[in-house]
């Protein structure tokens, strides 16, 4: 089911529906868009409107949830799996407070349907550490005072850690670019920069020492 459900994100659905409505009296290429959109929306298999069983691969274990297809990943994590480290703030993808990883990439879980994440590898803030061993970004956030009220922290940590996964040696500008979508009202941004760069440095040093 994983492949067939890919691409039906909340945003994707809205975009598809919108272009379908707008395109009916337009050019051939636009008609194609209608077909594509229709296939995306109505293509098999059909889930809902009732609750559907989904297998979510979260933090290394298989979890099953029974949710309506419209349920966001954030809601499934918080309400069904009690993984409340993921925070919902603006609920429309504008603050990155709900950031989790899907297949190692940071996504806004409030803008992702749980059904879209089924069968893919989900990592939440609770799964970032390895046992008691914190991720270097987590350690650095503690050391550099990169949190105050803590509510943006899970999203911020997941974003910063994802950066190091894809770019182990980021510049300050890389860090700024990566966390530019994460809002922190306490404004610990300077400390987040310091922490992320420190984590990268430390991780590199430990890899050199370990190699």
């Amino acid at each position: 089911m994983s492949d067939s459900t890919k691409g039906v994100s909340r945003r994707g659905f809205l975009k598809g529906a919108g272009s379908a409505a707008a395109a009916t009296a337009l050019l051939d290429s636009a008609v194609l868009t209608v077909r594509e959109a229709t296939a995306q929306i109505t293509g098999p298999p059909v889930y809902g409107p009732g609750r559907t069983e989904l297998a979510l691969h979260v933090n290394g274990s298989e979890r099953t949830v029974l949710v309506e297809p419209r349920t966001t990943l954030a809601a499934a994590l918080r309400d069904e799996l009690d993984l409340t480290g993921t925070k919902v703030v603006c609920d429309r993808g504008a603050c990155s407070g709900c950031t989790v990883w899907i297949d190692g990439l940071p996504v806004a879980s409030c803008m992702t349907l749980a059904i879209d994440a089924a069968g893919r590898k989900i990592t939440t803030i609770e799964g970032l550490a390895t046992g008691d061993k914190l991720h270097p970004v987590q350690e650095a956030f503690i050391e550099k005072d990169a949190m105050q009220c803590g509510f943006c922290t899970p999203g911020m940590v997941m974003t910063a850690a994802a950066l190091l996964e894809r770019n182990p040696d980021p510049t300050l500008d890389d860090v700024k670019e990566a966390v530019s979508g994460n809002l922190c009202r306490c404004a610990v941004y300077p400390q987040v920069f310091e922490a992320t760069l420190a984590a990268a440095k430390k991780r590199k040093a430990s890899q050199i020492a370990g190699s």
């Binding site: 918080r78 009690d82 993984l83 409340t84 480290g85 993921t86 925070k87 939440t124 803030i125 609770e126 970032l128 550490a129 914190l134 970004v137 987590q138 956030f141 503690i142 050391e143 005072d145 949190m147 105050q148 803590g150 509510f151 922290t153 899970p154 940590v157």
Partner: peptide
């Protein structure tokens, strides 16, 4: 002295509980 925030570890691990996180 600079010591980390009292709940620093809980914040970076998602363990810190806010009202709406209570089951």
């Amino acid at each position: 002295r600079k010591i980390p925030h009292d709940s620093a570890r809980e914040h970076v691990t998602g363990e810190a509980v806010y009202v709406d996180d209570m089951p």
